[in-house]
């Protein structure tokens, strides 16, 4: 196990290096650069002026030189500065990440607390009212685009309750937990709806799958109480695909839910990345993507480790 862990952690290095190269190539592949993005559309600079600015930011050097320069500094903990704000990229990321992290955790909580129980009940009481209602709920959750749901929630709240979850002034949890939750709960519900739906559906189908296994029949045959059968024998075995889905969605959300962050005006990492892309603020994009990738591979690793704890048959040598 320990050897496996060491190997996995060592394996993160090439992955992250790979990500850093891909992001570098990809962001430079997109036409337009920092300078043309700075210039904007309504009020324009000449090509000559733009060239001068390019030289100033070192954008006239060959790509591999720019990459080596950047990765060398990054290895020393220097991720460069944002052209836009002049702040170090790392401090921007660390300011934004907690927002996204909290949003992700909250929607995960919603998904697990609602999704798994309903999924279990739905499977054990197949075709009951709860089953039909739960599946319907899940289908609606999956079919509403979240920008759409977010817009509807904001419109409804402001029109009928004169309430706006977040009017642009984000307050951190440590400063004022109540105000913070007031701001975060609706975006979390927006994201959590679809999240809950996929968790619920996966739980249900996985439970139905497990219910047909011999050991479950054996357990029932032994005369164990239904609750014990469900909890001990079925649920623990049915959790693998659920954990997979949770891991995927969790990692995905950590990358920032751009549109929900925009709609609810939350200063999360997704917005930082989108702004970085549209401004061609290369240092910001590179730093942010690398950071998201890092968070992501860690979540993946944790997911894989969770398999071992849930299912003793899976062993990593």
């Amino acid at each position: 196990m320990q050897r496996y862990l060491t190997r996995r952690i060592l394996a993160l290095i090439p992955t992250l290096l790979g990500v850093s190269i891909v992001v570098f190539v990809v962001i430079h592949l997109i036409p337009g650069d920092t300078i043309s993005a700075m210039i904007g559309t309504t009020y324009k600079l000449t090509e000559a002026q733009a060239e001068a600015l390019r030289a100033y930011f070192g954008l006239d050097k060959p790509l591999y030189q720019q990459y080596l320069h950047w990765i060398w500094a990054a290895l020393h903990g220097d991720f460069g500065y944002s052209v836009r704000s002049g702040e170090p990229v790392m401090s921007e990321i660390l300011k934004r990440f907690p927002v996204t992290f909290e949003l992700t955790i909250l929607s995960l909580l919603i998904a697990v607390v609602i999704g798994i129980p309903i999924g279990v009940i739905s499977a054990t009481k197949k075709d009951s009212f709860i089953d039909i209602f739960g599946r319907l709920f899940a289908l609606i959750g999956l079919s509403l685009p979240n920008f759409w749901l977010g817009t509807l929630i904001i419109l409804g709240l402001s029109l009928y309750f004169g309430f706006m979850p977040n009017s642009g002034k984000y307050v951190s949890f440590w400063k004022d937990p109540l105000q913070n939750l007031k701001q975060m709960i609706f975006p979390a519900i927006t994201l959590g709806f679809a999240f809950t739906s996929s968790v619920m559906r996966t739980t249900r189908s996985s439970m139905l799958e497990v219910a047909r296994q011999d050991y479950v029949r054996t357990a029932r045959g032994k005369g164990l109480r239904e609750l014990t059968v469900v909890a001990r024998h079925m649920l623990s075995n049915a959790l693998i695909p659920v954990v997979t889905i949770i891991g995927i969605e969790f990692g995905y959300l950590l990358g920032g839910a751009v549109i929900v962050e925009e709609v609810f005006a939350l200063p999360g990492i997704g917005r930082l990345l989108l702004q970085g892309i549209s401004q061609r603020d290369y240092a910001v994009v590179q730093g942010t993507v690398l950071f998201i990738a890092f968070a992501f591979v860690i979540v993946n690793l944790l997911t894989d480790l969770t398999y071992v704890f849930i299912d003793p048959r899976i062993r990593y040598e």
């Binding site: 090439p14 992001v23 997109i30 995905y252 990345l273 993946n300």
Partner: peptide, 26 residues
């Protein structure tokens, strides 16, 4: 398994919007 899944990780870990934007822009 390790190598293939790590390569998948690189793409998986990549924010979808950036990836999509880059592909379409290119």
């Amino acid at each position: 398994d390790n190598i293939v899944m790590r390569v998948m990780d690189i793409f998986f870990a990549f924010p979808a919007i950036l990836l999509a934007l880059a592909i379409v822009a290119a």
